[in-house]
């Protein structure tokens, strides 16, 4: 009797210890998020001023802003999205609609998942070999292409998943009134899956707007204002990288402010994307 009771007690005790450890683990995870965001806001806000958005990146030891870097980031992100999204949506459409059971789809899905988590610096090397070396110089186009390669797998994945959620009865109804396949896809399937596909695109924007590694040796960096797509272009992440590792205090402050801008952008996009799919689930 007493052994059974003590066994019971020891099991109880073990349970409490392990569960306490799990709570501590969750605490650690949340505390880390709070620490990073706290430091970012504290250090970043100190440098927020109108000059950040109106002046160019300064020479060492001078005050200035991040205007050309912000502009470059927006330009390359937009081009990357414009190039990558149609390809991703079309490929996802093939996998979910035309070739749902084909061998090609299985292979593409596997390869796409690998591309999705492949190191982004490898993509940078690829675009360097593909564009920068033949052209002989770094350019914003190369940077945008590198970003679009990162966009494609994200969009493919979400498009396929979301189209697979569209009930077949909807497609059959479309086909039954005589609409050809592509009209059914365009006017029925796309419309039903729209919020999910938009979520994928938002997530892709969130991913590439903070990417640094693929831009390091494709778009390089530029101290000055440049809207020439065939020339090196500044971007926020690369500027942060360069400024943070410099010994100049003004540059380090700008790096923190830039980091805050990127984080708020990315978090904002992720939250919007999440609320779009969240509404879907509630319905």
């Amino acid at each position: 009797m007493s052994t059974a009771l003590s066994l019971h007690r020891s099991r109880k005790r073990k349970n409490s210890v392990m569960m306490a450890l799990c709570v501590i683990a969750a605490g650690i995870g949340l505390a880390w998020l709070a620490l990073i965001l706290g430091a970012l806001i504290y250090k970043g806000l100190a440098g927020v001023s109108p000059a950040v958005f109106t002046q160019m990146t300064p020479p060492p030891g001078d005050a200035g802003g991040l205007l050309n870097a912000i502009y470059g980031s927006i330009v390359m992100t937009v081009i990357g999205i414009i190039v990558g999204t149609p390809i991703g949506v079309l490929a996802g459409t093939y996998m979910a609609e035309y070739g749902r059971f084909s061998k090609l789809t299985t292979v593409v899905r596997f390869i796409n998942d690998i591309l999705l988590s492949a190191p982004s610096i490898i993509v940078g090397l690829f675009v360097y070999e593909l564009l920068v070396r033949p052209m002989g110089h770094f350019s914003a186009i190369a940077g945008a292409v590198a970003l679009s390669i990162l966009v494609i797998p994200v969009v493919v994945r979400t498009t396929e998943d979301m189209l697979n959620l569209v009930p077949n009865a909807l497609r059959e109804a479309g086909t039954a009134i005589g609409a050809p396949r592509w009209v059914v896809i365009r006017s029925v399937a796309y419309r039903a899956a729209l919020s999910g596909i938009v979520t994928g695109i938002l997530l892709a924007i969130a991913r590439i707007s903070g990417e640094t590694a693929p831009l390091l040796f494709t778009a390089l960096n530029n101290q000055f204002w440049s809207s020439n797509l065939n020339a090196p272009m500044a971007s926020l992440p690369v500027t942060i990288f360069q400024f943070a590792l410099s010994p100049y205090e003004e540059w380090q402050q700008l790096a923190w402010t830039g980091a805050l801008i990127i984080t708020l952008t990315v978090l904002g996009l992720s939250i919007i994307a999440r609320s779009l799919t969240g509404r879907r689930e509630d319905r």
Partner: peptide
């Protein structure tokens, strides 16, 4: 909320972790 908070950690660009790691 906690699940979302942990997943938001995944969305933070790696350069942010870098600058936080270096200075803090």
């Amino acid at each position: 909320p906690i699940g979302i908070a942990v997943e938001l950690l995944a969305g933070i660009p790696s350069i942010i972790y870098g600058i936080w790691g270096l200075f803090v």
